[in-house]
Design a binder for these strands. Structure first.
Lengths: 208, 208
DNA sequence: CTCCAGTTCAAACGACCGTTTGAACTATGC
DNA sequence: GCATAGTTCAAACGGTCGTTTGAACTGGAG
């Protein structure tokens, strides 16, 4: 098997998503990233242009497979008629947690990065994340509204942001210090628990 | 009516919870806080000792009435026998959102501050928040487990962290950019929606 | 070999960070 | 009046921040 040497650009992206995921955007310096990536400080501005552009590139790269999988599942569901709420919730949540399942340690890093950036303190950065996943999100919102005709559009939107938020919180692993909280030691079980939790809330917890 | 002049210490705490709530801990400088509070930079170290000590004092002050109200409600519920899950959820969620209801603009600032700090990127700061609300939280966890005997302790703990996380997200107002998402324009309705959502999830969405 | 685009490098830029200093001001008790 | 404790102040501390510069290195094309 070949060992494709990581380029400086790739090493920067890898370390960036790890460090940004641990300390947040403001809490992580370019120097910390470049040292860990064995790269020169100036490499960031050479390859990306700025700290924020590095973050943008890292978000785009991390989100791409998740969004692609969501799109694929949504296409498939819509091709088969009107999907149940559970199928839609599953199609949204599972791609976000399969990262951890399918790519082990590395996937957990990516998941934490995504979860953290999605609710970064800075509105600017949250919007950067939102822009990356906006098209597919509006498709989900529409599908959910169709699958829950008895609930008002506002109620479905409320459920949707709750789903989004809970997924991000579990991805970011900020909930784990609580004892026995179905942590990422078994991401498959976590996904099942979260889907069950959300399905119940969508089916019985949305005001008409 | 007297106009009790705000002390420098109070102005610092007020501005700190506003700015920390907007930009996060790392993203907010002491200079930005002291300028807005019309205070000298050195006043922070004189009154509190350090930036982190200022944050700690602000968290303590902001959480005190919320924790007190939660304690009061829990005492009352436990005095009246075994409370329903809904009553427990209500007793946990409502004090966190009544801030906005009862104290208007200022309360919204406090709520956003609390919600933001609870899931700050830095583990150190999240633990600072957790330490502030730990005793009352373990009481809630125990009461919830008693109210949901058919669910395993792990499942109840899972529901609890989800409740905690969703409340913090709505407090932080990071979910609001989504259109019509029951934003804080009517916090009473938000509280009702969130309670309904959580009750359904607790009653039907916890794996035994 | 020469050339050249692509990449890396050490070094420095000005700006801002949290913190500290020591003097100046304020108000109360004697 | 004077002393005193509490508070505020301008100024500076050393350090780190993101960004920029211009030279040095790299490897293939002509």
């Amino acid at each position: 098997m070949e060992t494709p040497v990581e380029t400086t650009r790739e090493r920067l992206l890898n370390v960036a998503e790890q460090r940004f995921g641990e300390g947040g955007y403001e809490g992580t310096s370019l120097r910390a990233i470049t040292v860990a990536a064995a790269a020169n400080i100036a490499a960031v501005n050479y390859h990306f242009g700025s700290k924020e552009a590095l973050l943008r590139a890292a978000v785009a790269r991390a989100m791409a497979p998740v969004n692609a999988e969501r799109r694929r599942r949504l296409d498939q569901l819509e091709a088969g008629g009107s999907p149940e709420p559970e199928a839609l919730i599953r199609a949204f949540v599972e791609p976000g947690l399969e990262l951890v399942l399918r790519r082990g340690e590395r996937g957990a890093v990516v998941a934490r990065f995504i979860g953290r950036i999605a609710f970064d303190p800075s509105r600017r950065i949250r919007e950067l994340y939102a822009a990356e996943s906006e098209p597919i999100e509006s498709r989900y919102l529409a599908a959910l509204q169709q699958a829950l005709p008895q609930a008002s559009p506002d109620a479905v939107a409320f459920g949707y942001v709750n789903m989004l938020g809970l997924l991000a919180l579990h991805q970011s692993q900020a909930l784990s210090p609580t004892p026995g909280a179905a942590g990422p030691e078994d991401p498959g079980k976590l996904a099942e628990n979260l889907v069950t939790f959300l399905v119940a809330a969508f089916d019985h917890g949305l005001r008409s």
